[in-house]
Simulated scan of single mutants.
Amino acid sequence: MSSRRYLGSAAAVIGAAVIGTVLPVVSAHAAGATDPGTDPTAAFTATQADQEVPRLTVTDASTGTWPITSYSFDFGDGTAPVTASTTPVTHTYATGGRFTVTETVVDDHGRSATSQKSVTVVHGTLFGAPLVAKFYDGMMGSHRPFVGLLHDRGAWDFTNQRVSGPPTGQSTFGTADGDIPIAVAPAYGTQVVVGVYRSGQFILNTLPAPTTVGFGQAGDIPVPAAWDHNGHDQLAVYRPSTATFAVRHDDGSVTTACFGDPGDLPVVGDWDRVGHIQLGIFRGNGTGRTNTFALRHDDGSVSTAGYGDYGDVPLVGDWQAAGRTTFGIYRPSTGTFALSNAYIGKADDVFHIASLY
């Protein structure tokens, strides 16, 4: 990969009290003494009217002193940006998936500003937001990775099988559009619980009532894991706009690290069987090109592997209980999971969950 930022000093401070809207990155043109006013602040909304058609409608919501005269949208799928003098603007994707959409606006005084957000585009009724959770497998007598899907209306499907068929487990939790499914072991010795990440809040399906913990902000991607190696998970997020991981430790402190480029998606796991969490990113490389997983090792080196097609959603897990983490993908357009077993020299598992919802 041609350009990377590696683990280093803190690039952003993300605390439990920092909850809100992602601040846009503003690129301003200097104003002269006879040209008072403020630079524009870029913002936009993105909606999809029909889940059977992967078409996104973006509408500008920018503010500023002077009228906006140009709107440019990069829809994050490798196609050329679309420039228009008014909005809304529509764009049809080749397939469903998660994409980073970037808007650049220019006002009539030549000032510009940029805003970016990650959006999920649905294509077909098989779509769901994928999840990997390490549940106890009664048949195997051990904890093993299950894959699952969070559907609309908070319906969950899970399976520990690697062949197409109905789910082996189901649940309901989470109801808001845009909820990101998560699985967390909240305390030492406790069972893994499912939950959702919603606009800077981790919401866990605990008993007798859900537990809500604020960490991060809207637009962040949750990456909870056993960061402190103490028998349970710590909350963590990845901020795509700055390629920053932020981990909230048990004592309330926060550590941050940069890896990847803005717009990448996070993956974390034990790539080297070293007993602790290591960083990684997933980069969609454009329509017709293989995606790239980039995995960072303890010595600072980075290994890369191509897997899947553009529009796929990354997954990581120890699919064959070999003691280390590897990767896979979920393809929203067909509802297909593909889990790489190359790390143990076996054929990949390719299957789908026949949802009952």
Results as ranks from 00 to 15, higher is better:
Tyr6Gly: 12
Leu7Ile: 13
Ser9Leu: 13
Val13Ile: 12
Gly15Val: 13
Val22Gly: 03
Pro24Leu: 07
Val25Pro: 10
Ala28Cys: 12
Pro36Ile: 11
Gly37Ser: 01
Thr38Cys: 11
Asp39Thr: 14
Thr41Asp: 07
Phe44Ile: 02
Phe44Ala: 05
Thr45Glu: 09
Thr45Ser: 15
Gln48Tyr: 04
Glu52Gly: 14
Pro54Cys: 01
Val58Phe: 06
Ala61Pro: 15
Thr63His: 03
Tyr71Arg: 09
Asp74Leu: 06
Asp74His: 03
Phe75Cys: 07
Thr86Asn: 13
Val89Glu: 05
Thr95Asn: 11
Gly97Gln: 08
Thr104Met: 08
Asp107Ile: 05
His109Glu: 12
Gly110Asn: 02
Arg111Leu: 06
Ser112Val: 09
Ala113Arg: 14
Val121Arg: 09
His123Asp: 14
Thr125Phe: 10
Gly128Thr: 02
Val132Leu: 01
Ser142Ile: 13
Pro145Leu: 05
His151Ala: 05
Arg153Asp: 14
Trp156Asp: 03
Gly165Met: 05
Gly174Arg: 05
Ala176Asn: 11
Asp177Trp: 12
Ala183Ser: 04
Ala187Cys: 09
Gln191Lys: 09
Gly200Phe: 01
Gln201Val: 15
Ile203Lys: 07
Asn205Gly: 10
Pro208Arg: 03
Thr211Arg: 11
Thr212Val: 13
Phe215Lys: 00
Gln217Met: 11
Gln217Ala: 08
Ala218Leu: 12
Pro222Trp: 01
Pro224Val: 00
His232Lys: 07
Val237Lys: 00
Tyr238Asp: 00
Ser253Phe: 02
Thr255Leu: 00
Phe259Val: 00
Asp261Glu: 13
Gly263Asp: 00
Asp264Lys: 04
Asp270Arg: 13
Gly275Pro: 03
His276Cys: 07
Ile281Trp: 05
Ile281Met: 13
Arg283Lys: 14
Arg283Ala: 08
Gly288Tyr: 03
Thr290Gln: 12
Ser301Val: 07
Tyr307Met: 10
Tyr307Val: 05
Tyr307Arg: 04
Tyr310Trp: 06
Arg324Phe: 15
Phe327Ser: 03
Tyr330Trp: 07
Ala338Asn: 15
Asn341Glu: 09
Tyr343Met: 07
Tyr343Thr: 03
Val350Phe: 10
Val350Ser: 09
Leu356Val: 15
Tyr357Pro: 10
